[in-house]
Amino acid sequence: MTERCREKYLVAGPPFLFLLLMLAVPCVITLIASMSYPGEFGGLAPFISKDTHALHGLTLETYLFFFSDFIYTEIFIKSILMAAGTTLICLMMAYPVALLIARSPKKRRNMLVLLVILPFASNFLIRIYAWMIILGPQSALSRLVNGILHMFGQAPVHLLFSSAAVLTALVYVHLPFMVLPLYTNLEKHDPALLDAAQDLGANAWQRFCQVTFPLSLPGVFAGSALVFIPVLGVFAIPEILGGTGDMMIGNLIKEQFLVARDWPFGATLSVMLTTILLLIAWLTSKAGAIHA
């Protein structure tokens, strides 16, 4: 190993080790926890016990339990659909915004990007509670919607504590994560390519479909990953804005640890979630590599 090479490892080594430890150790702990027995009063049962009647050692019982009741799979599927829906809506809303910023004069772009990330300046929970007020039964929005429904002889609806409320807030919170990678990609496009396409007879729609969109796919994949992955693990938004039927994986895991005190099952759910996310991340990076 040359001197330069060793230096590189010395510099990159500690942060890399830190990340590895902070990822690998919790993963291993969670994996072991998922295969343990629950303790009598929460927590985990000891591995080795003098009392031969007490449960100890490793088991796959929780995994069998997961598949024995369809309700858990259903929550997973619903969560994945919710995350996919959020991603799709974010993509459709973010694309025009990113395109607008990328095609606006250079000196205005930084200001527009700043506006996109400005919501991060206020606290996440405060923004979610703000949606509670906006969607609440006494809010102007609720009155307007129900007023219109009343005019057409329809029964009033509750905007708050619904899947729609959860979806709205999920899209709102994650939109910047879609805008930024898309903008970064679109900004690099050579405007001469669009001129060339137009010159060769492509109309505005064809130019978008043939040139802009295919070239932006790496940005689309990056943005989708940045939205889909956190949304799948979210628990605060459904907890605050969702109804009883809007439980997502994140809520389920939280319940197992804090309410049901079933650590092994909570850990099992976490392992399943992480596995699904890794699978999706791997597929996305493969798809991204093809189009890069």
Binding site: D190, A192, L193, D195, A196, Q210, V211, P214, L215, H291
Partner: peptide, 9 residues
Amino acid sequence: FQSYALFPH
């Protein structure tokens, strides 16, 4: 075009 503007994809 000057830089040819070939579609890279």
